[in-house]
Design a protein around this nucleic acid. Sequence first.
DNA 1: CCGCGAATTTCCGCTGCGTGCAACGTGCTT
DNA 2: AAGCACGTTGCACGCAGCGGAAATTCGCGG
Lengths: 257, 257
Amino acid sequence: MRKPETTARRPGRPAAPRLAPDTDGNVRAVDRALALLLAFGDNEAALPLADIARRAGLHMTTALRLLGTLEHHGFVRRLPAGGYALGPQLLVLGERFRRGLRLEDHVLPALERLRDESHESAAFFVREGAARRCLFRRDSPQPVRTVAQEGAVAPLGIGAHGRALVALEADPPPRLPVVSRGERLKEVAAIAAPVLDSRGEVAGSIGITMPLYRFDAAAEALCLPLVLREAVALTRALGGDPAPVAMLGRQSPEIAA
Amino acid sequence: MRKPETTARRPGRPAAPRLAPDTDGNVRAVDRALALLLAFGDNEAALPLADIARRAGLHMTTALRLLGTLEHHGFVRRLPAGGYALGPQLLVLGERFRRGLRLEDHVLPALERLRDESHESAAFFVREGAARRCLFRRDSPQPVRTVAQEGAVAPLGIGAHGRALVALEADPPPRLPVVSRGERLKEVAAIAAPVLDSRGEVAGSIGITMPLYRFDAAAEALCLPLVLREAVALTRALGGDPAPVAMLGRQSPEIAA
DNA sequence: CCGCGAATTTCCGCTGCGTGCAACGTGCTT
DNA sequence: AAGCACGTTGCACGCAGCGGAAATTCGCGG
């Protein structure tokens, strides 16, 4: 669909403007097969064929054939009771994607320390273009807790993690860790700090999330040092220099008082 | 491709023999796109286009077009340095697959208890046809530990988990938990017990894995009761009757002695 | 600096693959 | 019993996808 500019398009032009990730140039059958996978919602274990076809905007016949191919490779499975569900191969590839980032050896223990010491949920976000994505999460053991899923995306710039990821670029850099109270999500409070890698780049942000009503002075006094401590430790574990993070750390209460 | 048998094939024959999940009847473009995803090995963060095409047995032109479609949906990403890597969408779908099983709310805490009390790795397997698959895993904090990945498959009938999953079908049912020493993997010891759901079916197996040299009498005395305790607790948490598991439990040492 | 080869990407014509229609069985509700 | 929704199969048509050729860049060595 991209019209040729004035100059006749010579084959093999390398400076193709990749700015247009249009829907054309795509392989239709693959487009449709992936749409079938994405037709499964968040909390839907199984869907009948007709529903999947309707959501993807495909004829049942087409959906049936594509699902057959997906099933053959383990990307979906047919349930004995009828209907389709996502397949185990997605788990394998999802884990491989995470492994490619080579972060979890250090991030997971840090998250579990945060959760165990604060009794609240802990999460680690990475920047992804103009957004952020939750890569790892460890849920609070308490019955009332925030809910979020690994893999989910959220905007940059808002929310504690959203601001922590860009904290070092802000002109008056904020004190660390960043604290949010009902900022992006009503009734949710969060504490987050950036983590640096060996090149000094922001590798991600680590923090604690909890219901806002539970975030009183005692919780604040407990959680802020925890998050800062883990952000510094994680930065060091990744081979980075924790100085930029530690320098912006809030005074510990006993010193500031 | 399948030749019509002697009888004229009337459209709409319902008694189709589904026994042949052959490679035909599949949508070729989708087959190839999925082959590209599976071309990424276990520890390969990034691959150049030529490698991917070669592994999938495709011409580079074809691979380029298919990868473009996959990238458009977030199933692969182009790295700034050149080359392709698996994409974040796989993480989202992998999590959705697990969520469809609705197990992790109870399984994850049990695994973390096992890991924290034994200081060894804990894992949960489910049966999948004639094999088993590792659904969840929590790694030991020790520097020398067994390595395995969530999503990996292993055979039934061998290894502690492989035997635990079929323990209740065996004629002389084995004592629980099942113990293996270098059985499937040299140098690896494992302790596992089955977990039942509310229908009395085997929902999976839970257990501990460790280097064989560390599995001495003290470790055995510590880990066996732990595994049995969590298998019973998890069965109860899923609404199942733990009696079949508890009845096969080994006598606790002080009683048996 | 220049030339060679490998890697990547665009264009294009042919053909075989994928699509959707029609038909049919099944199971459930009216 | 009739009606309806769902799942499945076969088939012919049309275009979508395939692969070759060519253009371009990059890396390497002379």
